[in-house]
Design a protein around this nucleic acid. Structure first.
Lengths: 346, 346
DNA sequence: TTGTAAGCGTTATCAT
DNA sequence: ATGATAACGCTTACAA
């Protein structure tokens, strides 16, 4: 049986040098002879040495890991945001710890505590739906832990925030519905304490105003962002006699579509429909769903870059908000004339 | 400005005790007076103490983290497997590090090295498609790092393996197609060096045999597991004049469905179709896709439990394979009579 | 019940 | 260019 973990002292003994020299050689310090460096690196490789980063970080006072907290990784948006962060932080020499909150405030706090215990270099977070108290974030800032928020953010906490252009997402979707001939547009939104849904709704309102349509609060339904809540909301929506529905998320739109089909209300001829998020299924369902694409990977990139900047220049805390553009994707659910006419040219 | 990181010595000084007492109090050791424990815990809370797990693990010689390596987290199966692992290891006091290989062998090796450097307590892995050399896994075993493989595994490496019942998945899908009246069933599979696809194909072959249908190797097409490769494969498949197609994955089945639609070949009347994996989209597309459900969460649970068992009783390395049952889900793509007849009773 | 002291594996500051 | 040594924050014999 092999020795389980080789240390620099093992290598030092083997080669008749001291641990300090080995340390220097392995970290490519210039303060070591070229020849001995080669010799040491060769021995390290042969002996299967793997640096003990816990010891190194303990000594250096800072770890090489970054913590990322997301509601759940099985959502298209978040898994791509994670990949976007990895693409930046891994080459920069950090490794990423991921924590899922499953929309729970308690888990969010737990995740932050886990990260603190692990002395992560910084934290990237998108808030849980449940989260309405932000003292856990404030305490991070107070401790001097670099913090970047993305997507679901709280404006009162200092530090960079990277968000989708949710306002424009709502605006573009509703403007499109209006141009497509719909006049009474209902809106399904999420929990209105969250920036993402508030902003999308404001875009909806602004688009109505800009096209001379009166905003009717009775046509807005909140806490309806899942497939199930979309299904349930339909009967109430129909009471307001809409000719189209704009959902703040694709899952809600999916539920709405299913329920409308069940009620034999055809889309888009009897009811226009648009979602937001461009979930993978939205192009596969029938009719395909008009929606707004979010660039999750780009958001991950930017969040990671902002964090790395904070880590490298510790002078001051940046406090800006980056708004990442979104893109309207028109599909069958909102276009009354046959799609072939639109797609013929492609 | 607050002191950034409180240590047990800070607390000790504050209360006029020694660091050892504080350590004992915080770890709920019985070797400390009830009163002083309360006093210390209160102070720790008030001062915002967070244990430095790097220092603790360095001293204890083992870290409280578990590393998990998956091809990608934006796949339904893997993100649920991750959640399944978390559900077990978090309450057990471990935290999970996740590494995505994106199907790359180089990244897989890199991930393992990162985990070694972090002295993870154990590793849970599902192999990348590219991986055909397993020495990196063998060296983990040699080092005595507890290793659990799941889903995509290599039988030559010691240790627990948790897999889907892929053979039965293939068998059930094909048996169903035969019972539904299809006779010439083509098969789209993945890279045949991988256990998952080999087993599914063997299930396909066995089902044919058991129902007196000759197996024709010309009707099997490999390296076709993505949506794109599904689309591309269709023309070659059609040359073999099948009346049904069994795809080893839902994404390939989706591609096949799209291409068949484009060619005006109707499903299921002109061509039966079945996938495997029960991706979320498979019930949403039209026609809905007959497929085989995999219990990713359960697999994650079992992998985590196996690992924790290895961590707790270090006496010997278990070397068993757990096969997790799968379930056939019949939908429109494989049933020629109207689905209403089948579903009427529900 | 509490204190003392050593040591986990590194790196950084000295000194040589 | 290399060596000796201290220190990072914690846990755990061992002592008291």
């Amino acid at each position: 049986v092999k020795k389980l973990n080789i240390t620099i002292s093992d290598i030092a003994k083997e080669l008749g040098v001291t641990p300090s020299t080995v340390s220097r050689a392995l970290s490519n310090s210039p303060r070591v002879n070229e020849k001995t460096r080669k010799r040491i690196q060769a021995a390290a490789l042969k002996m299967g040495y793997q640096q003990n980063v816990m010891a190194a970080s303990l000594r250096k006072g800072t770890s090489g890991s970054i913590g990322m907290i997301v509601p759940r990784i099985n959502r298209h948006f978040f898994s791509n945001a994670v990949s976007g962060v990895e693409r930046i932080v891994n080459p920069a020499g950090y490794n990423l710890l991921i924590y899922q909150t499953e929309e729970s405030y308690a888990k969010e706090v737990e995740g932050i505590n886990t990260f603190l215990k692990n002395r992560v270099a910084g934290i990237i977070i998108s808030l849980a739906t449940e989260t309405q108290d932000f003292s856990h974030l404030q305490s991070l800032v107070d401790r001097g832990v670099p913090l970047v928020q993305f997507d679901r953010v709280n404006g009162d906490i200092a530090g960079p925030k990277i968000v989708n252009d949710n306002f424009n997402g709502g605006y573009l979707a509703v403007k499109h519905l209006i141009k497509a001939g719909f006049k009474r547009i209902a809106h399904l939104t999420g929990a209105t304490h969250m920036n993402v849904y508030r902003d999308r709704m404001n875009g909806y309102i602004e688009a109505l105003k800009d096209h001379g349509i009166a905003f009717d609060p009775a046509m807005v339904f909140d806490n309806a962002i899942t497939r199930e809540s979309g299904i349930e909301a339909v009967s109430k929506i129909l009471e307001t006699k809409p000719d189209a529905i704009f959902c703040a998320g694709d899952y809600a739109a999916l539920g709405v579509m299913e329920e409308l089909k069940r009620l034999k209300i055809t889309i888009p001829s009897q009811m226009g429909l648009a979602g937001l998020a461009n979930e993978p299924f939205s192009e596969m369902i029938s009719p395909s769903l008009t929606t707004v694409e979010l660039n999750a990977f780009e958001i991950g990139n930017r969040a990671a870059n902002a964090l790395i900047q904070m880590l490298e220049k510790t002078e001051y805390v940046m406090n800006h908000t980056e708004i990442v553009p979104v893109r309207l994707i028109v599909r069958e659910s909102s276009v009354r004339q046959p799609m072939v006419l639109l797609n013929e040219k492609l």
